[in-house]
Design a protein around this nucleic acid. Structure first.
Length: 279
DNA sequence: AATGGGCCCAACCGCGACTTT
DNA sequence: TAAAGTCGCGGTTGGGCCCAT
């Protein structure tokens, strides 16, 4: 879809040589940006644009990466369960889309905002126009308002970036800010190995027989290095030699157990590159 | 087959916050 | 402390797609 749009958007390398390009991204521009970031990471977005040879603003590059190229993005449509989560979080947090997106791995603020504006809000307007409570228009199932409580941010933790803004250098290929995932140690004999870690890496998504819908292995360096793995140093110092990223639905399931969603912000984890394809 | 209206989503814009110098 | 540079956010828009007529 985007490719189709981009293809009709003209030649990325043509036109006036020094004028900043706007509009849809071409596949070539995507490739340049993706390659640049996966190989060298992000120091500042304006330098990424420059070094990738793109006639785009840093801002535009950031947006493209965050909303489309990031390897950890979910490609599938927003599920019913995710929709319920969006509704609950919007109710408690308001239109703080980035915070809401931060609670939904693989989803972007833009995606959630668009989804809200185009579908949920409209539906709620329709139902409230027909005399119902707008907030309860969707059947909530097992995700009641009480569940939404566990998503709320502690005030002091709001807007806590992984690496602070400005020109913070980050080891490749992880972008300056990257999402948090709940992870599970492999070979630890069960749930005892649950941990939280940070990741900004490529996921090779696989569907497992146990029904976990989007369990993924973490790999490094995008397409060129799918065999490499990051090592994560957890808060207690324990190293994980491999982690599984869990899909959002899996995380909701964990609420019944030891791992709560709001645990995501309670620990800080640092990513070190163990082996690496970065040149 | 043509067309017009609504939907959806990628991307832009403007602004505030933060960092660096 | 101020200014400049950069980032990130929420609101908005433009245009392609889909579908009913």
């Amino acid at each position: 879809m985007v490719e189709k749009r981009a293809a009709s958007n003209g030649d990325a390398s043509g036109g006036e040589a020094n004028k900043e390009r706007k509009g849809l991204w071409s596949p070539e521009e995507d490739e340049r940006l993706y390659t640049r970031i996966t190989r060298h990471g992000v120091s500042t977005w304006s330098s990424v644009a420059q070094l990738a040879g793109l006639r785009r603003s840093g801002k535009s590059c950031r947006l493209r990466w965050m909303n489309y190229l990031r390897p950890d993005l979910k490609k599938e449509p927003i599920s019913k369960r995710e929709e319920e989560t969006i509704i609950s979080l919007q109710k408690s947090l308001g239109n703080r889309w980035s915070v809401i997106a931060g609670r939904m791995p693989g989803r972007t603020d833009n995606e959630i905002k668009n989804y809200w504006n185009s579908r949920i809000r409209k539906r709620q307007q329709n139902t409230s126009a027909s005399g119902e409570d707008g907030g309860s228009c969707v059947k909530r199932g097992d995700f009641a308002a009480a569940d939404a409580k566990s998503f709320e941010l502690a005030p002091a933790e709001e807007k806590k970036p992984f690496s602070s803004g400005g020109a913070t250098a980050v080891a490749p290929p992880v972008p300056a800010r990257f999402p948090l995932f709940a992870c599970q140690l492999l070979g630890s004999g069960g749930g005892g190995g649950d941990a939280i870690a940070a990741a900004g890496t490529t996921q090779s998504t696989t569907t497992h027989e146990n029904g976990a819908s989007s369990e993924s292995e973490v790999s490094v360096g995008g397409k060129d290095a799918v065999e490499d793995h990051y090592f994560y140093s957890a808060g207690d110092g324990a190293d994980m030699d491999m982690v599984h990223l869990l899909g959002f639905d899996d995380l909701l399931d964990y609420q019944a157990g030891d791992l709560l969603m709001d645990g995501w912000d309670q620990s800080e984890f640092y990513c070190t590159n163990s082996g690496s394809s970065a040149d």
